[in-house]
Amino acid sequence: MNPGIIPRNESIPQELEQQMDLRGVPRHRFLKISEITIKQFCATCNIFRPPRSKHCSFCDNCILRFDHHCTWLGNCVGLYNYRYFVVLIYSSTIFLMQCLYVTVCHFGQEADDTFGPDYGFLDVLWVLSEDTSTVFFFLYCLFLMFAVLLLAVYHTVISLQNLTTNEHVKNYYREGQNPFDYGGLKNCQQIYCFPENLVCRSMIQHDPTC
């Protein structure tokens, strides 16, 4: 789905024609967010990006509250689809856990049918050797489960801090300097219930020095 694509201008708006530099590009506007200076104008889309937006080189669009470009989905994750992405990785984790549980139960049932209720460890090994395809399926699900579980934990942690993947990886804010952090509960409420609301502290200001 649409991650929050900002509509682009086909050409530079007329009101900016008086603000061109020597290259014929509008002079940039800069925002200072917690001592980090961010360039707003996107020369590709011919727009001034809102805070937390970024131009994705894969999708060739500016994305609101850009999180990351997901190669699994072939789509950006941003303002409008981040909560659905988190639901996807949580549900995938639960599904893979269920697959592992059912596979273990299957092996136990096979051992019980073959050797009776008093089967031992060697009996289980014999069952595994006779059903190698299911063993490979179990190992495959185990690998995926750990990968998706780590992803789910990671996004839980950055959601509690109201950070995007892009902001966290690039270490945008120093400790205690995130202007969008209002505590774990309010952060999750804003991200998952009211994502369109841009709530921030007074750490965002115009930077006239650039």
Rank of each mutant, 00 (worst) to 15 (best):
V25N: 12
G24R: 06
R27I: 09
S34W: 08
C193N: 04
S159R: 05
A152K: 02
P3E: 06
H168S: 15
N197M: 07
M1H: 09
M203A: 03
F121D: 11
P3V: 08
E167F: 10
S202Q: 08
E10G: 15
C45I: 12
V153D: 03
L144I: 07
Q109H: 15
C141A: 15
V157G: 03
Y140G: 14
L22V: 10
F48I: 10
V87N: 01
F30H: 11
Q98I: 12
R201D: 11
S11L: 05
M97T: 03
D181A: 07
S129D: 09
N2Y: 05
P26R: 10
M145A: 09
E130Q: 14
C200M: 03
A152H: 06
N2V: 02
C105R: 15
C141P: 00
C45H: 14
K39M: 03
I191T: 03
M97N: 03
V153S: 02
V169S: 14
H69I: 07
H155K: 04
D21P: 02
T37G: 04
V153G: 02
R49Q: 14
A111W: 05
I158T: 08
F107V: 14
F95C: 11
T103V: 15
Q18C: 03
E196W: 00
K54N: 14
L31H: 12
R23N: 13
V135W: 04
Q18E: 06
G108N: 13
S11D: 13
V102Y: 13
F137E: 10
S92H: 00
C62R: 13
Y82W: 02
I12R: 11
L160W: 05
C188A: 11
Y172D: 11
Y192N: 05
P195T: 07
C193G: 05
S133T: 12
G116E: 11
T71S: 11
I36D: 02
I12C: 07
R23D: 13
R23Q: 13
N61W: 07
K170T: 13
